[in-house]
């Protein structure tokens, strides 16, 4: 009976999970400054952009960055100061929690806020992820917000204006958001339909940062860093990405994301031939349309030997 149990996995309480390493993120425009400014002013943020352009990575990066409070970012501070890092504070417990919630059709308000659970004869209240983020003062990232049920907006509204409170109806409580709390949502306008659109009353509580696929040279650097391919291959992959995106609106609903290009690069570093890697990671991943397959196939064979 003395066998020691070995934990094969690491588990964290949601608000206590911090990124231990700085996520790799290459800013394309001024999104870092915008985010910092909004964070300081407690303005909620909405990310718009297609899949795989780095929305989630960006929010991770920002939470890491903002969680290393170093010299606190002041208004009007130059870009430089935000980049300087105070290494001693690394373990000072000032980390900024990041709670990511992937929204889906059945996500209800109580999934976010929390609920009572039966425990034996009594009941116990369990905080939902949003409540935890509000309490601990972290960033709450609601991914693909349009997918969530409409009643979630009831929670979002009071949290995103001057009140910054989270009503917990069932317990008759109001929780005031902790200092560092910020609500960030993402939303992909490509899926935008008449039925699933954000209401303006919700939408206009956020500033919107638009994410586009990065320009070729930046994308090339990202691919090189993430997948470990050499510069030439990264350039080729970035070129492929650019060309495939040109086909958008010609039958392709969504262009090849940076993520897919990175996958292709990763396959190549494992010794898969470039054409084959692009075929499986890019061509077959983006569409089932035969004529687009043929086209992309030709583009691939033009770019890669």
């Amino acid at each position: 009976m003395n066998t020691t149990t070995q934990t094969l996995y690491q588990s964290y309480i949601v608000e206590e999970y911090f990124l231990s390493e700085e996520p790799f993120y290459l800013p394309i425009g001024d999104e870092v400054e915008l985010f910092q400014a909004a964070y300081e002013q407690k303005i909620p943020i909405l990310f718009k952009g297609p899949t795989g352009v780095g929305k989630t990575r960006f929010v991770e990066y920002m939470s890491y960055k903002l969680g290393k409070p170093l010299t606190k970012v002041k208004k009007h501070s130059s870009q430089k100061s935000s980049l300087s890092r105070n290494k001693s504070s690394k373990n000072s417990g000032q980390n900024l929690p990041l709670v990511t919630i992937a929204c889906h059709e059945d996500l209800t308000a109580s999934d976010l806020v929390g609920r009572y659970l039966l425990q034996g004869d009594s009941t116990e209240w369990i905080d939902g992820p949003l409540t935890r983020a509000v309490k601990s003062g972290g960033i709450c990232y609601l991914d693909e917000i349009v997918e969530a049920r409409k009643d979630t907006t009831v929670l979002i509204h009071p949290l995103t204006d001057h009140r910054r409170i989270l009503p917990i109806e069932k317990r008759g409580e109001l929780i005031e958001a902790a200092e560092g709390f910020l609500l960030v949502m993402s939303y992909n306008p490509g899926y935008q339909t008449a039925l699933k659109d954000l209401k303006h009353s919700t939408r206009q509580r956020f500033i919107a940062i638009e994410f586009d696929p990065p320009p070729r040279d930046i994308e090339s650097d990202i691919i090189r860093h993430e997948s470990g391919v050499n510069k030439q291959t990264a350039d080729q992959l970035a070129r492929l990405g650019e060309k495939v995106r040109n086909l958008k609106e010609h039958g392709l609903s969504e262009g090849a994301s940076t993520r897919l290009l990175i996958y292709a690069g990763k396959l190549m570093t494992q010794g898969i031939s470039p054409r084959r890697a692009c075929q499986v990671a890019v061509n077959w991943a983006i569409t089932d349309d035969f004529s687009i397959h043929r086209t992309v196939e030709e583009v691939i064979s033009s770019i890669f030997e």
Partner: peptide, 14 residues
């Protein structure tokens, strides 16, 4: 024609 057309569109981006 269709194939080459799409190919050219991909390359030129217009």
């Amino acid at each position: 024609k269709h194939l080459i057309e799409m190919y050219c569109q991909a390359l030129a981006g217009s």
